[in-house]
Design a protein around this nucleic acid. Structure first.
Lengths: 202, 202
DNA sequence: TGTACATCAGTGAACGCGCGTTCACTGATGTAC
DNA sequence: TGTACATCAGTGAACGCGCGTTCACTGATGTAC
């Protein structure tokens, strides 16, 4: 039953994609290897032809998921100011809060990632650092260091807002957590543009 | 081997305390009933004399943990402005980040709480609402609604900052996440008191 | 180019293990008389 | 107040189940000649 190299690579990619969604949807601990393989249309035994362990799969899933965020953020940033703001605002929308498949692993599995192994945490950190760079570059503050500080605050606040919004049982409060964060983080910039050095870019 | 009512109540309390720490330390899914009972100096079989299920224990642990936060916040608030600010600042300290036993369940098990059953989420939400009230009452903004909004933002941002600070592998970045949040949330108020209506209370 | 053979992706049974929960049993507690 | 007995906190074996991982096996792929 050996498969061609192309098929093998495709299978590995499929397992990784399925795992990324499953980890974010159900949590790390609650997601079994068998479950992932079944969702990928395979039986569990073949898993170890592609990954050394569940831990390694998690690390790669985390890296892949962060990279997806980075790429989409870069694309939005390259599409201009309005597009980037819309992109950022999306992460504080109710749709994003209610979507537990895609999205940021730091939100979907935050407390579990804090206990994950080094490789996984490194992948998460690397992605976070790249997101900081993108947001900081965009913000164009007076100094690079304050732009970076602002980006860190924006990102960690967003992660906190969505995390708490997903926990809270009262939909009204949950929505308010998101809207308050949106407002206070100056997203969109039409409301209280506070600290941005330029009101609009060319 | 029946125990007196006082002993029984004490045992139940001990199980709850041990469980609260264990859930926050290792995560919900990763903490077993047997493990909790052993830590409480008991065997696992007796657990169900005190709790109907692990889920019920979690809900009570979450409620108890949030209530501890609420009580300590109220105490600090009653001790004056400086004490309350110091109390808030503590939650953005490196010691607090590195302490995975005590502290806020929304940080320690945030992503797992989002998937927990209704009772647990209700307990978490109720505690969060009480914290909002305390912070909002303290901030004394021009209007009650903006004070509440400010409190929501402060709390969810703090939760996000500590969550991410615990994930990030680079200590320098982790520290910066905390310090940036501290600065931007105007804690302590000696730095950029931004929006507080009164600089100091009598 | 055709053939013989080593490789290895995927299968499905099995490994040891820990999970949450149940249950028969024990003996001290608390209560009814 | 003293006694007989029902209650029930805690024990430890057992339940069925799913976990992550291993392994003998299969047969198509890819390669060496």
């Amino acid at each position: 039953m050996k498969k061609s190299k192309a098929e093998t690579a495709e299978t590995r990619k499929r397992i990784l994609e399925v795992a990324t969604q499953a980890f974010k949807h159900n949590g790390i601990r609650a997601t079994g290897v068998s479950e992932i393989m079944a969702a990928a249309g395979l039986t569990h035994g073949g898993f170890y032809r592609h990954f050394a362990s569940k831990e390694q799969l998690l690390a790669e899933a985390c890296a892949a998921s962060m990279e997806t965020l980075v790429v989409s953020a870069e694309t939005a940033a390259a599409s201009g100011d309005a597009a980037f703001m819309k992109h950022i605002a999306h992460f504080l929308s109710t749709e994003y809060r209610d979507d537990n498949l895609g999205g940021c692993p730091l939100v979907a599995m935050g407390s579990e990632l804090a206990r994950a192994d080094m490789d996984t945490r490194r992948a998460a950190s690397q992605g976070f650092r790249e997101l900081i760079d993108i947001v900081a570059r965009w913000s164009q503050l007076e100094s690079a260091s304050s732009a970076r500080a602002e980006a860190i605050f924006t990102l960690s606040s967003m992660i906190g807002a969505v995390t708490v919004a997903r926990i809270v049982d009262d939909p009204k409060l949950s929505n308010q957590i998101l809207s308050v964060a949106k407002k206070r983080l100056a997203i969109p910039a039409t409301k209280s543009p506070r600290r941005r050095a330029t009101a609009a870019r060319a």
